[in-house]
């Protein structure tokens, strides 16, 4: 099934039509919706000059907020990998009571406005909440700590991982593992050596999407985080704070810093994915 891709890079001479049309449209749409508006942001930050830009982001407060945003998003996305894999795997392979309903629920985090998600999770996890109260008994404070941020971000990021894995798992079918099993591999060997490698690109894609999405999350986090400077203050909150002082350039500077981090992540993930993809096809 994968062998037909073994020619590697697509041939130079295109038999397929439509490259000019689709590429042209893609570039036009990308420019109008994304690139030009983002250029406006970068230009605004550039108005500060290099020194001004550096001064705006090189404060302990900004670094701490960037660190909180990044680390909580990273933790949440990592946690989402096994959770997402279990859910996607089960949904595609096993008879689950109410499968369609469970499948439908996966998109809930998309559909609930982030503010509602934040309010709801805070209701659940605050010291007097359904989960918060027993957890507090057990000595675990969730709401108004970094842990609370992570929980909110797990909620926000979950559909990305599940939805990235599902089509791949559906397409994967049973053939590869049947082959491995019939060749004498144990189920865990089969999983580790045959199935998991086939899932790497999708896992990486889901992870990256979840990370990218959660790193800048604002609406759901402000309710549960407590927003304490140097502890639970996230970078988007600083942007809002700067805007509140009519400091557009300063806000744009922090935004650009966040953008740089995100783009770096995406680039790294995409090149890793390209490499994984090629290895998978070999």
């Amino acid at each position: 099934m994968t062998s037909r891709l073994s020619s590697g890079r697509p041939a130079r001479r295109h038999i397929l039509p439509g490259l000019n049309l689709t590429l042209g449209y893609t570039l036009l749409y990308l420019s109008v919706i994304v690139l030009i508006p983002l250029a406006a942001l970068v230009l605004k930050a550039a108005g500060l000059g290099l020194d001004g830009f550096w001064a705006a982001i090189n404060t302990p407060r900004v670094w701490s907020a960037l660190r909180v945003s990044f680390l909580t998003a990273l933790a949440a996305s990592l946690v989402n990998l096994p959770i997402g894999l279990v859910i996607a795997w089960t949904l595609t392979r096993y008879r689950v009571p109410g499968r369609r309903l469970v499948d439908a629920l996966i998109d809930l985090p998309f559909a609930l406005p982030t503010a509602v998600a934040g309010i709801t999770l805070t209701t659940l996890l605050s010291p007097n909440g359904w989960l918060g109260a027993p957890l507090l008994e057990a000595g675990l404070r969730v709401a108004y700590t970094p842990l609370g941020i992570i929980v909110a971000l797990i909620f926000i990021g979950l559909p990305f991982v599940v939805r990235s894995l599902q089509p791949v798992l559906e397409d994967l079918g049973y053939e590869p593992e049947e082959a491995a099993l019939s060749l004498g591999a144990t189920p865990s060997q089969t999983f580790a050596r045959v199935i998991l490698p086939a899932l790497y690109p999708a896992l990486l894609s889901g992870f990256t999407l979840a990370l990218a999405r959660t790193i800048g999350e604002y609406g759901s986090v402000v309710f549960i985080s407590g927003n304490l400077p140097f502890k639970t203050e996230i970078a988007p909150l600083l942007i809002v704070g700067k805007l509140e002082q009519y400091d557009y350039a300063g806000a744009a500077a922090v935004a650009v810093a966040m953008l740089v981090i995100s783009v770096t992540l995406l680039l790294a993930a995409n090149s890793a994915q390209a490499r994984l993809g090629r290895r998978g096809q070999a």
Binding site: Y144, V222, F223, G226, N227, L228, P229, L237, V240
Partner: peptide, 9 residues
Amino acid sequence: PVLDSGARG
């Protein structure tokens, strides 16, 4: 312990 972003929060 908590700094909400707005008064109603």
